[in-house]
């Protein structure tokens, strides 16, 4: 028998092992829900799976009686727009300031203390300020996400830029590059995959700030809906919404990972060998 640390699951076993806890969880819910409903058919805490389907059917596939809108998709679109804007803006800010602070000692000296201080302020504590300054509209929600995650991205990226070996920066200078050219041809491409890593890591916080802002002041959005229906203890809506948020978060993370592998094969050690071999035969044919 091999040591535990050396035992590797096969591909099939890995998938099976991954699904097992999920299946067990669903099963446990089912049993518990059944037991509670048998005792009290009006129990709202653990609705049956059928109630989830009913609730989603109502919200997603029937127009709302008052507004005529499909609430589920409306909420999804509103939340995705906010988180997309917030995360996109944060990535851009993180990229610009991260590179500037990481590469230019003068900028670092000027900005690093400020960024550190801002990153230490709990963003939720300044949410009221955001509402006062930016109003209760879309801007304040996007700004909460930006203020919440961009200091992290800036600091992470600054670190990544400073990790670029001195030899590489010196090498670029011996090839005649000025500072701007070093940024666009060396530093930027080297840290872009790392930016996507940082963005993936900050998605969890971004969702947190989004839901918080929507819970407090919004008229649509996934977080708004959950907190709205809480008044009626509508677990049949809350639980599917939570599952949907988890799925969206997973899909965003997965897309960023896939995008990164596709854009930056060198970062993942994915070779261009196959492409290269066809290219070199072409070259050989041309020269022949």
């Amino acid at each position: 028998m091999k040591r535990m640390v050396n035992l590797q699951p096969s591909r099939a076993a890995r998938i099976g092992l991954g699904l097992l806890p999920l299946v067990l969880l669903v099963l446990a819910y089912w049993l518990a829900s059944d037991a509670r409903l048998a005792e009290n058919p009006n129990d709202k805490l653990m609705p049956a799976f059928g109630s989830f389907i009913d609730a989603i059917e109502r919200l997603a596939f029937e127009p709302n009686k008052r507004s005529g809108e499909y609430l589920f998709w409306n909420d999804t679109a509103a939340s995705l727009k906010r988180i997309g804007l917030g995360v996109g803006l944060s990535a851009l800010i993180g990229l610009v300031f991260g590179i500037a602070c990481g590469l230019l000692p003068l900028v670092r000296a000027g900005l690093s203390p400020l960024v550190t201080i801002i990153s230490l302020i709990p963003p939720m504590a300044i949410l009221p300020i955001l509402f006062i300054v930016f109003g209760l509209g879309e801007l304040s929600k996007v700004m909460l996400i930006v203020i919440g995650i961009s200091p992290f991205i800036i600091r992470d990226l600054q670190g990544r830029v400073m990790e670029i070996s001195q030899e590489i920066l010196i090498k670029a200078q011996t090839l005649g590059a000025n500072t701007w050219q070093i940024v666009v041809r060396v530093v930027l491409p080297q840290v872009l995959p790392r930016l996507l890593d940082a963005v993936r890591l900050s998605l969890g916080s971004a969702w947190l700030f989004l839901i918080a802002a929507e819970a407090i002041a919004a008229t649509e959005g996934l977080g708004y809906r959950i907190f709205l229906v809480r008044r009626y203890m509508s677990m049949d809506i809350i639980l599917p919404y939570v599952a949907w948020i988890a799925l969206l978060a997973f899909a965003m993370d997965w897309s960023l990972k896939t995008l990164s592998r596709w854009l930056f094969p060198w970062y993942f050690g994915i070779g261009a060998s196959d492409k290269a071999s066809t290219e070199s035969t072409k070259v050989a044919e041309r020269t022949a």
């Binding site: 030899e167 590489i168 090498k171 970062y267």
Partner: peptide
């Protein structure tokens, strides 16, 4: 500057 080139023992090409 470009009038003086260098080759280090390692890390002197651009990985990207």
């Amino acid at each position: 500057g470009p009038d003086r080139g260098i080759v280090f023992q390692r890390y002197s090409v651009f990985s990207h």
